[in-house]
Structures are given as C-alpha cells and as structure tokens.
C-alpha cells in the first residue's frame, strides 16, 4: 500500500525463548482505525510496542512516514514518540501525584511547551472529553472511566498522527468502555489521527475500520480473509 502512514513487515521478536512475533505484517493509513485482535499471549501487544518504536523487533522493518523506525536510535524513537504518537493503556498510566490537568499537559511539557500554554491546551482537550471539571483532582480521586478519558485527552493533546491504544477499555464496564471508545474515535477522527487499537473484545474492535488478527505471532488481515 503506497499511502500507508505506518507499516510493519515480517516482524520477528523473541522474549527469552518465547517467540512473541513470528513474521507479523501491519499497515495503517492516515485517519484509519485498525484493530489488532487475538487471544491472550498471541503477541498483539508486542506488535503494538514494535510499531510504536517502544521495542525494537529482532528482525523486519517498520516504516513510519517514509522513515525506517528500526534503524533509528533509541533517542530518535523517543523523540518521535513524544512528537507524533499518543498512547492509551489499560491502567496504571496516570502519574498519581500530578493533577489530572497536569497529567494531560505532561506530553506537551515533555515537548518543551511552556507550562501555561500546555495546561491551557490540556484543558481544551479535557473539555472535549467532558472531564474538564476534574482538572484539579488527582488520579486517585476519580473513577476508572474518568481516568481513561483523562488518558485519552493526554494521548490526543499533542495532536498525534498515530494513537496507540492497548486495551483502552479493558478495565471498564460496557457503558464506560463504549463511551471512552466513542470519545476516542470521535476525537481522533476530528484530527485525522490513525488509531492502532489492541483489544480482545469484538464490540470494541467494531469501532475500527479494519481488523487484523494475531495468532501465535502471525498476523492475518481479516479484510482480505472476507
């Protein structure tokens, strides 16, 4: 696919003696939402980590926006993650001692945006995710669903081109999970960000445009299977 924003080809990764990826393929276009599904332990999170440049695959290539991610240094990939990628995880991702607003503003501040401006922009995103009233609260004082919305706001505050969401609703009930997904998809669509969504729930995967299934470290593009 020529217009792909981020793609991985023939990715292999082994932890110790356990193979996590064994020839996985992946591609995503700008503004696209792609779900990565599969049983636990199939390697879907590892695929996400490789694509996001958090983990370097043992072999294979990852291209992002014309650049070869696997050839970049650790520092270069960190810088890329700061500027171009957003992240939402299942839990344990908010810094407990910072207020919600400070959490949201954190990625901007890591990009050397001045505190005032970072927090103003953070607050805008909190408004869009309907959690502006939690700005002064700390993560320990809010519910799980609110926490995930804060996390979504934090992922989107730098206007990333790719959002990586690893089981973003895994710890939430259906109602909160659906709400978070709607907000995430809506907000990402409005900024034309692509979303790489790892989930094991079909209802959550149904928010995607396309899904691939990872089994035993191999990926299968279901659009082609159909």
């Amino acid at each position: 696919m020529t217009d792909s924003l981020l793609s991985g080809h023939d990715l292999h990764k082994t932890y110790g003696s356990t193979p996590a990826l064994a020839g996985a393929e992946f591609t995503i276009r700008s503004g696209e939402v792609v779900a990565i599904m599969g049983p636990s332990g199939s390697g879907k999170s590892t695929l996400l980590h490789c694509l996001a440049g958090i983990v370097r695959p043992d072999s294979g290539t990852i291209r992002y926006d014309g650049r070869d991610l696997t050839a970049m240094s650790d520092g270069g990939r960190s810088a890329l993650r700061r500027s171009d990628f957003g992240f939402v995880f299942q839990f344990g991702q908010l810094v407990p001692e910072l207020t919600c607003l400070e959490n949201v503003a954190l990625p901007l501040r890591l990009n050397a945006v001045k505190r005032k401006e970072a927090e103003a922009r953070g607050l805008e995103w909190m408004e869009r995710l309907e959690v502006a009233d939690l700005a002064r609260k700390r993560p320990g004082e809010i519910s799980g669903g609110q926490g995930q919305r804060i996390a979504v706001a934090r992922a989107l505050v730098i206007r990333p081109r790719v959002v990586f969401a690893d089981e973003p609703t895994g710890a939430l009930d259906s109602l909160n999970g659906e709400r978070v997904m709607q907000l995430l998809i809506g907000a990402a669509r409005s900024t034309d960000a692509a979303i790489v969504l790892v989930t094991h729930e079909a209802r959550i995967a149904a928010y995607s445009d396309r899904e691939i299934v990872v089994r035993d470290g191999r990926s299968r593009d279901m659009a082609r299977a159909a």
Partner: peptide, 9 residues
C-alpha cells in the same frame, strides 16, 4: 468472523 465484524461495525 469477518462477516460478523462487518455487521458489528
């Protein structure tokens, strides 16, 4: 599975 997901989408 693909068919189901298409409908779910």
């Amino acid at each position: 599975r693909a068919e189901h997901l298409t409908m779910m989408r």
